[in-house]
Design a protein around this nucleic acid. Structure first.
Length: 461
RNA sequence: GUGGGUGUAGCUCAGCUGGUUAGAGUAUCAGAUUGUGAUUCUGAGGGUCGAGGGUUCGAGCCCCUUCAUCCACCCCA
């Protein structure tokens, strides 16, 4: 048994996986760019203080904290000990840990915007493709290090942004072949109105956590949970009426309108949902009243993209509007809205549905066999020419028996083998074998390039 | 953080109610074949049975502890 390992929930990516991941990245990036977003990268770590308290109580527990350096320095030891005592009490101590791995891309983005709001032109549209870390327990579709692709717009209250972001979901998933995805929307405003109706704002989180589980545990158990969270009979009845709303988007909208007549907040939320759905023709959106989303900072429309139902992996993207995220960093008045794609789950979905194209798996297109010093000298200029013609090639690393070289070529996914031996040397020839068909022919070395370039397509974008 | 399953060769696994020297397939390497790769044949290497402790005349198997991993819950992408 090897003692070597990597941290729990983290992974190496061999060539084949990297290429498939790149395939996903490049398509998402392309759509983002087409919609007028520009790239941004933020560091792996943020100050712990920047992240704490932004993701709810559960979220805080899942933030990877980084131990300060020099804790054992004689000058710091007293501080370190006191700080550690504080940690044991469940408090924070900058004397022990003041940095953390980022938990998502949205909060660091908000921090960036707040930090640079003087220089930024609004509305500001940025996308980020970077890893994030969560100290969650790994399981299917859940990793401790995973990559998010976010697109955010800040400095605009226009619903046009929501409409564009909805279209981005559609374009990305179609570009990847995930046509059976589900996109749900809801409004935090409607949920807040519901909370108003049922015991006040402070119950909002309790209510959303409970109703979010409806399709998982059923209405009865949701009610049990609502009672245990301190709601009374009357309030639960209202929530049940809310949850019983079904039918088409139009029917749902109408039913919600009826339920919340004369509630200003609810009317606002409903109007936004209605507007979004009306303006997203041809895109499959589901108005889902049970969609809640755990992140506390959302204030308006919220999104969730789910994998096709045959793949039991759940959410593959999410997002929503946050009216005052930068306010948390002392710069109020900059509203924003954003969406996120979970690349690692999208990868798993595509793997399960067999959506990756064949061509991604290939090795080096061309391998020159190595049958001796003289042959090598003959191959070198040929390889140089191939590379100039944009055809990747390599020479077997040492003189060896041909079958060994072919075996290597086969296993590493080479497309063509060029055999150069004494015959070819004498006649200035090259023998080309197509490894997929087994077809082989000998030609003048001058025609080699044109022969290969008509046959080799560059499939890796 | 809570609950459950699984840890035996590089990989996939077998190993009976505890009983000599722990096996198979596959992969690797070498040869059969001195210019041709998914086939065939022969041979070789590779295991402190996850780790530590206990019960026993005797433990891969039983008990305890611990670690890793997978699955589910919480929460989430």
């Amino acid at each position: 048994m090897s003692k070597l390992s990597i941290p729990q929930g983290m992974r190496d990516f061999p060539a084949g996986m990297v290429r498939k991941r790149e395939y996903i990245f490049s398509r998402i990036r392309k759509v983002f760019e087409l919609y007028g977003f520009h790239p941004l990268e933020t560091p792996a770590m943020e100050n712990l203080e920047t992240l704490m308290g932004k993701y709810g109580e559960e979220g805080d527990k899942l933030i990877f904290r980084v131990l300060n350096n020099g804790l054992n320095d004689p000058r710091n030891i007293e501080k370190s000990k006191q700080g550690f005592e504080k940690l044991l009490e469940g408090k924070n101590s900058p004397d022990v840990t003041e940095r953390a791995l980022k938990y998502d891309l949205t909060i660091p983005f908000a921090r960036y915007v707040a930090m640079n709001h003087g220089q930024i032109t609004f509305p500001h549209k940025r996308y980020q493709i970077q890893p994030v870390w969560r100290a969650d327990r790994p399981q299917k579709g859940r990793y401790r290090e995973f990559t998010q692709c976010d697109a955010d717009v800040v400095g605009s209250r226009s619903m046009l942004n929501e409409i564009e972001l909805t279209a981005i979901y559609h374009d990305v998933f179609f570009a990847l072949g995930i046509t059976q995805y589900n996109l749900s929307v809801n409004s935090r405003k409607i949920l807040a109105a519901l909370a108003d109706l049922c015991g006040g704002k402070e119950k909002l989180i309790d209510i959303t956590i409970a109703i979010d589980k409806l399709d998982k545990i059923g209405l009865e158990k949701v009610n049990v949970e609502l009672f245990s969270r301190g709601l009374n009979e009357k309030q639960v009845t209202v929530i049940n009426t809310f949850l019983s709303i079904s039918g088409t988007n139009q029917e749902r909208i109408q039913a919600v309108k009826n339920l919340f007549s004369k509630n200003e907040l609810a009317e606002e939320g409903i109007a936004e949902i209605e507007y979004l759905i009306k303006n997203s023709k041809g895109i499959n959106i589901q108005f889902d009243l049970t969609l809640a989303r755990g992140l506390n900072y959302y204030t308006g429309i919220i999104f969730e993209a789910k994998a096709p139902e045959s793949v039991k992996i759940g959410s593959i993207g999410g997002g929503g509007r946050y009216d005052d995220l930068t306010g948390l960093f002392g710069v109020p008045g900059i509203p924003g809205v954003g969406i996120s794609f979970g690349v690692d789950r999208i990868y798993d979905v595509m793997e399960e549905l067999n959506l990756f194209p064949e061509g991604l798996q290939k090795g080096t297109p061309v391998l020159f066999t190595n049958l001796g010093e003289e042959e090598v000298t003959y191959c070198m200029p040929l390889m140089h020419q191939l590379r100039k013609a944009n055809i990747g090639c390599e020479l077997y690393h040492e003189k060896a028996k041909l079958d060994k070289q072919f075996k290597y070529a086969h296993k590493s996914g080479t497309g063509y083998c060029i055999v150069i031996g004494s015959n070819e040397l004498a006649g200035k020839l090259a023998t080309v074998k197509d490894l997929t068909t087994g077809h082989q022919e000998t030609m003048s070395s001058d025609t080699l390039i044109s022969y290969l370039s008509t046959r080799i397509k560059n499939t890796n974008e």
